[in-house]
Amino acid sequence: MFKRFDDDTRKVVEIFVDGRPVMAREGDTVSAALFASGLDVRRKTAVSGAPRLPYCMMGVCFDCLVTIDGMGNRQGCLVPVHPGMQIEIQKGKREIGR
């Protein structure tokens, strides 16, 4: 769906998506990094399990919810990546304690 434009000179930041290494860039939000990864990063909703991807990218739609460093239901479009960040795509409701 998306690719990075050619002249992006920002530093590469390695993150992990469901355990797989992904090269993000410094300043990317989690959602942007996921889009750029080319991976299938569709989450499943907590209500019906329908597949979703981020819709608004500005913190209002909550379709970017993702588990970040073990914490569920975070808004991926608001959180910047950091080296070594562990991201898990959520399938349905989050688990208690995560």
Binding site: F5, D28, A36
Partner: peptide, 11 residues
């Protein structure tokens, strides 16, 4: 937003 903040473009 993806474009401005991360230089992402539709492909």
């Amino acid at each position: 937003t993806a474009l401005k903040s991360s230089g992402l473009i539709p492909d």
